[in-house]
């Protein structure tokens, strides 16, 4: 049913650290890889080797240049996937009940058997989290890897969404954002995590951690040589290089 649950037992979601993300797109690639054979499989591509390829992705990385006060501007890589909102507008606009939010963990899913492909949910989502699969004629979206996080065939430490396990920098954390004592909630409060587009009133579960725009490591610091004996340093360096190549 498309009535949203008043309260979910858990609020599973992601916390994405914009200070750490390097924009390598590994999370998006691994997302596509896992999900093309998962709950919403396959994630169709249209003309993948043609002139104008398109396809369904659940996770996309956008890059912005942000002007800062201290040091010119900073590049901010911004990964974006479904935020599994508490007041998910995509769910309540669905005319068939194919879109739903789970009572037990708050994950927002689409039932591909009952979706009529009217696309209204994708219009209602401010974040662009839903993508229409024109080959299948149904709407698809991030499942928070529902088929991975509860998968008992996997070792326990691998039961996290594909984007989290593939992130080489640890910019993505996964957990229950409804549990006040969880590590992930502590991380959000320590780093002043925030909601995207709060004025849209979707109450997203996923949180973003701000990039440190005005890092003072360069500010008012004189650059000094770190060693006193330059000749000795050079010899050490030669030795290191030789040692590495042997």
């Amino acid at each position: 049913m498309t009535e949203l649950p008043k309260k979910t037992n858990k609020k599973l979601g992601l916390v994405i650290d914009l200070d750490i993300c390097v924009g390598c797109h590994a999370c998006a690639v691994n997302c596509k890889e896992w999900n093309t054979s998962g709950h919403s499989s396959p994630l169709h591509d249209v003309e993948p080797y043609g002139d104008d390829p398109t396809g369904v992705w659940f996770n996309r990385i956008h890059t912005f240049e942000v002007e800062t006060e201290v040091k010119g501007s900073k590049t901010v890589h911004f990964p974006k996937s479904c935020l599994h909102c508490e007041d998910a507008p995509c769910v309540s606009v669905c005319p068939t009940g194919a879109s739903y939010k789970r009572d037990e963990d708050g994950i927002v899913l689409v039932n591909a058997e009952t979706c009529i492909g009217c696309k209204l949910c994708s219009w209602a989502c401010p974040y662009g989290a839903r993508e229409y699969d024109e080959t299948a004629g149904v709407m698809k979206k991030c499942t928070l890897c529902v088929d991975k996080i509860y998968n008992e065939n996997l070792p326990e430490n691998e039961r996290v969404p594909a984007c989290v396990s593939s992130c080489p920098t640890g910019a993505r954390s996964f957990g229950d954002l409804g549990d006040e004592n969880s590590e992930i909630v502590k991380l959000v409060s320590e780093r002043e995590g925030y909601n995207l587009m709060p004025e849209q009133d979707c109450k997203p579960v996923n949180k973003y951690l701000p990039p440190k725009l005005n890092k003072d490591i360069f500010k008012n610091k004189e650059l000094k040589p770190i060693s006193k004996d330059e000749d000795q340093d050079f010899e050490d360096w030669i030795e290191q290089v030789q040692g590495a190549s042997e």
Partner: peptide, 13 residues
């Protein structure tokens, strides 16, 4: 509000 960063200038890179 879309990316949650306050700045005088944000450009799509």
């Amino acid at each position: 509000t879309a990316i949650g960063i306050k700045s005088n200038g944000i450009t799509f890179f």
